[in-house]
Nucleic acid binder design. Structure first.
Lengths: 259, 259
DNA sequence: CGTTCGCTTGATACCGCTCAAACTGCGTGG
DNA sequence: CCACGCAGTTTGAGCGGTATCAAGCGAACG
């Protein structure tokens, strides 16, 4: 059975037919959630592992005064932590950013899966490492990248993550986030996102309209963002057609693009 | 045997004597590293799990133009990911911020440890969840907190993390980071850190000198930082003397402190 | 058909950065 | 013992990137 979760895990390890079967069996019935609805609320007791089968979701924290930060994005094939059920209390909420299709795997089933298959165990571990690496990269973006680099980097990440699981069409892929969503993810205001996006468009680097992103000049965009895809730790090459992997040069030698 | 790693894991689960013995045996010989030296470089193949026994280290990424972001801090008892040895290539570097004492656990030994003890397995999983939660909180800080809130929040975190493993003396604890270090962790300049720190001092919230931090008014500091310690996911209460856990009120109801 | 949400643009304000320099404490070597 | 250097801290002046506030427009939607 083909689903985004198995496609994702296949990028880390080579799963056997038995593995993918077990995985497919483990997934509970699909659940449909409307856009802008909380999938999990802060303070909830997380009983099971949610897997995104379709649509985009986001983890976020919100302050009393309304400030909100999206701390990570969940794309098809992503899970809210494989171990989340160990916790008593969610320290953040998860919202459906588009209509989302979810499946659940109970904590018990999850533990079975991993104890029955070394390969699956390793796949989930690698997945957690990749998720941690993405989170670190966001930290770098928020801490040290300019508005332009920050937006460029996120667009590179989102394109590559989708290419990896077969959701990109060459240099183009879905990008359903609104500008307010991007603002909450990048720690800025939607007004500024709008202006930065126009800079990227004027520079001929990206096209973004009707919820679809196209990387018009992937090399220059990657360079501007200082995007180094190795942090995603995929062992098999899934970079979408139209985006060549960056040649292996000492990253330090390449000057940043200016607009 | 008593070491910071077992003290740390004890905050998540109750370890048996056999567990702590196995853990102590697993730790390789202590290695001493001078301040400002890279423990692990970007691009390295991580062969073993490093455990910090003493001193502070930091993960960081650096750009060609010199910009640097510290993405997380490793305090005594912290490990560079329990699963890091699965990866082929470090996507970031780790530097000793003070002189550091390290021990290593080989990947093989680590897997043994976890397969032999359910409790240890769970402890390491919970540890990874806590680390992920800290990383998310940093993302929130960098994205949405003001300079003042950001610094206050980090100081709260560092105090509590040390209190948890018995390194705090009431409201006071080691704080060996220099202002340039703080700047690289908080995504700011050392000049601005300096000024923000002065604001915190003038407000009577903290004292910080000769590498030692004292929370002079923990309640107001926590409130200013909107510090909610539950994200650290310790199941046993280790908040240091002098810092009362925040009463359970709907967080939304509490207005932020102003200076 | 009205309302809401997202996108866009303009004017202005301010937080945090840059550049520069002086000061402090401390280790080191003459 | 003093001179020196160095790293970290502190202060000042000016600038710039991003936020804020405000308004208009179009498209989706109930």
């Amino acid at each position: 059975m083909d689903n985004p979760l198995t496609r994702k895990l296949q990028t880390y390890v080579r799963l056997t037919g038995a593995d993918t079967d077990r995985l497919a069996d483990a997934l509970g019935p699909a659940r449909r959630i409307g856009a802008r609805i909380d999938i999990v609320a802060e303070g909830d007791d997380p009983r099971a592992v949610n897997v995104v089968l379709d649509g985009w979701a986001g983890r976020y924290k919100q302050f009393a005064d309304g400030r909100r930060q999206i701390v990570s994005l969940l794309l098809p094939g992503d899970t809210c932590d494989p171990n989340i059920f160990l916790l008593e209390r969610m320290d953040h909420a998860i919202i459906a950013l588009t209509p989302v299709t979810l499946a659940q795997i109970s904590g018990r089933t999850m533990q079975d899966l991993r104890s029955r298959s070394e390969t699956l165990e390793e796949a989930f571990h690698r997945e957690m490492l990749a998720v941690a690496a993405i989170q670190r990269e966001w930290t770098v973006s928020l801490g040290r990248r300019s508005a332009l680099e920050r937006l460029a980097h996120l667009l590179c990440e989102l394109h590559l993550r989708q290419a990896t699981i077969g959701l990109a069409d060459g240099p183009s892929c879905p990008m359903p986030l609104t500008q307010p969503d991007l603002a909450d993810a990048l720690g800025q205001t939607s007004v500024h996102i709008n202006r930065t996006l126009q800079d990227l468009r004027r520079a001929g680097l990206v096209a973004l309209r009707s919820r679809r992103l196209t990387l018009l000049d992937p090399d220059r965009l990657w360079s501007l963002a200082q995007f180094d895809p190795t942090y995603l730790h995929h062992t098999r090459d899934h970079a979408g057609a139209g985006v060549r992997p960056r040649e292996a040069d000492p990253a330090a030698a390449r000057p940043a693009v200016r607009l």
